[in-house]
């Protein structure tokens, strides 16, 4: 034995799990949705994703190296995930410079200004998206039509999202039965044939990703399921009360950013609660806020806002809601 024995406190074995592996699995889980997006939006989806990913990685690297003067950690994959998620939240005909601004806001303000990975209170991709939505409302809400605009990037034909159609229609005094003639049916929605941000359209592809994340134990089911249940129950009650002026709960689940938000954005480790009880509160809050914004708010869609608002409550939830301690109940009884 020529080498010195290592001495460290227990445990002496490790699961082999790493941040890189977790992030890699998230990327894998996003691939089906990306594939569907490229199928529907073609060139635009590809270009937007590429620009968002490259600029997020670049900003992360540059900020860490030259501004914070630390060893860049882009290899951990978190910037890659942020870039993909940012792209998934953008229309596929967004001009490149707006995407770059979005990436800068996501990484620079959303993440690095708080101290980098693990310290940001808000989901960086959503910070970028909401910044762009408020700053560039026109560009951010002109959605290329699926299939028809496949060969185009900037000059694609555009239309509205189903949610916007419903909102406009109801505002104009129409009833759901007349509006539903203009919007895709639930089966089409499940397959993603609608206008929208490039990653949010294909519910089935996102659900495949969800299954992968659960299988790989990257996330737990609590947050997505609590969001789905809340949205389904809330819109279901509204629909039962007045079906003429409220869309059915399946429509609400399958449109807009619910799937993408619930599965990939709300479950972001850094900005979600640390135990199942807290996750339920978080999920119910997101679901309720989403429906409130959709039904009574000015915007047709509210998932991003709902997640960001609930992100702000996470520290409070973590402080107030504790996991079930071993031996706790017995103590109360005794």
């Amino acid at each position: 034995m020529n080498k010195l024995l290592a001495v460290s406190p227990s445990p002496h074995v490790h699961s082999g799990e790493s941040v890189n592996k977790l992030m890699f699995n998230v990327v894998l889980a996003l691939l089906p949705a990306l594939a569907v997006s490229i199928y529907y939006f073609g060139l635009g989806a590809f270009v937007v994703t590429a620009i968002a990913v490259v600029s997020c990685l670049a900003f992360e690297f540059l900020i860490q190296k030259y501004l914070l003067k630390v060893t860049p950690s882009i290899s951990d994959g978190s910037a890659l995930v942020t870039g993909l998620l940012l792209a998934f939240n953008l229309p596929s005909n967004l001009p490149w410079w707006i995407i770059v601004i979005g990436a800068l806001v996501s990484i620079g303000i959303g993440k690095m200004s708080f101290g980098g990975l693990g310290n940001n209170p808000f989901n960086p991709a959503l910070v970028g998206r909401v910044f762009l939505l408020i700053s560039f409302p026109v560009q951010m809400t002109s959605w290329p039509l699926p299939i028809e605009s496949r060969a185009h990037y900037m000059d694609a034909l555009t239309g509205a999202t189903p949610l916007a159609l419903v909102k406009e229609g109801l505002k104009g005094g129409q009833t759901m039965s007349t509006i539903s003639e203009h919007i895709p049916n639930n089966m089409q929605l499940l397959m993603g044939s609608m206008g929208g941000s490039l990653g949010e359209i294909a519910a089935f592809a996102l659900l495949i990703g969800f299954a992968w994340l659960l299988f790989k134990k990257v996330i737990t089911w609590h947050i997505p399921v609590s969001i789905f249940v809340t949205i389904f129950a809330f819109t279901g009650i509204l629909w039962l009360i007045d079906p003429a002026h409220n869309a059915d709960p399946f429509f609400h689940l399958l449109t807009g950013g619910v799937m993408l938000g619930a599965i990939f954005m709300a479950t972001d480790y850094v900005t979600s609660p640390m135990n199942p009880k807290g996750m339920w509160i978080f999920g119910i809050g997101i679901g309720a806020l989403t429906v409130i914004i959709r039904v009574w708010g000015a915007y047709p869609e509210g998932v991003s806002f709902a997640i960001l608002i609930m992100n702000a409550f996470v520290p409070l939830i973590n402080t107030l809601v504790k996991p079930k301690r071993f031996g706790e109940e017995v103590k109360k009884n005794g």
């Binding site: 010195l4 290592a6 001495v7 460290s8 406190p9």
Partner: peptide
């Protein structure tokens, strides 16, 4: 001379609670 290689968290207190030193 070193007799072993400490590999725990970088803290004298943690090392002390573990053993007498490297």
């Amino acid at each position: 001379a070193k007799t072993n290689a400490y590999d725990g968290a970088k803290s004298c207190r943690i090392a002390t609670s573990l053993y007498s030193g490297d």
